[in-house]
């Protein structure tokens, strides 16, 4: 129960901020006395949070699944030749700024969630690929040799021996991937997707610092909550 305390605390704080942001109007009025509208009202913060979560979930799930699949493939005997290539491509995916991906993808895919998912997916792929590879190659050769020698087939060995032993490192990779996706997802608002980045972007263009602060605080709390959840899962695995 103790290990659930930290994620519960952060979640409580996130929900309180989401639903209580509008009641903080007097605070924002006193902080930014020159602003006519000191609280973002275009969408409810709950709707922004849900939309943000949806985008992150889809992009991270795809990055995780594709990343783990690539990591598994290039650590099999038949895929080992492509390991360098896979690492290079996923590293390039992260070096390439998501804003640039959006700029390139929008003309062909149009405005909306598709180019955003693509940009986030490419950005979050590297940690998933790298940690899956790292997790699988640190499984001791003796353990793999024993499994094969006792009569485990290649897929059974992967599923029953290698993946459980690689799980903590793979989980770390997913955690990094999800956390950076939560932060980066804000830019999806530049291509017309509603996210917690919407008040941030509007605030930047309209010189409304209060909006920027409101969006940023919620993104930060969402990242901290998610991180605490991963921590709890990690503890349960150990």
């Amino acid at each position: 129960m103790i290990r659930l305390l930290r994620p519960a605390l952060w979640l409580g704080l996130l929900l309180a901020a989401t639903f209580g942001m509008t009641s903080l109007r007097p605070l924002f009025t006193s902080l930014f006395p020159l602003l006519e509208r000191p609280v973002y009202m275009q969408d409810s913060f709950a709707a922004l949070l849900l939309a943000h979560l949806e985008l992150v979930t889809v992009a991270s799930a795809l990055a995780g699944l594709i990343g783990i699949a690539i990591g598994i493939a290039v650590t099999r005997p038949w895929g080992a030749a492509y390991r360098g290539l896979a690492e290079t491509i996923s590293a390039a995916g992260q070096t390439f700024p998501p804003v640039a991906v959006l700029a390139i993808a929008v003309p062909s895919m149009g405005f909306g969630p598709e180019p955003a998912v693509l940009a986030l997916l490419l950005y979050g792929l590297l940690p998933a690929v790298q940690n899956t590879i790292a997790g699988l190659i640190q499984v001791p050769d003796a353990v793999k040799d024993a499994a094969t020698g006792l009569g485990f087939g290649p897929w059974r060995r992967l599923w029953q021996v290698e993946l459980p032993l690689a799980a903590p490192l793979i989980l770390t990779g997913l955690r990094v991937s999800v956390i950076i996706t939560i932060g980066t997802a804000a830019i999806a608002s530049t291509v017309g997707v509603t996210t917690l980045g919407s008040p941030v972007l509007l605030g930047l263009s309209a010189e409304n610092t209060a909006y920027v602060l409101q969006g940023a605080v919620l993104i930060g709390l969402l990242a901290l909550t998610t991180d605490a959840v991963f921590d709890a899962i990690h503890d349960m695995l150990a």
Partner: peptide
């Protein structure tokens, strides 16, 4: 292999 016992120096317990 399931019908042949196999033991190695580094043991390789799971």
């Amino acid at each position: 292999r399931r019908h042949i016992g196999y033991v190695i120096q580094s043991v390789g317990l799971f």
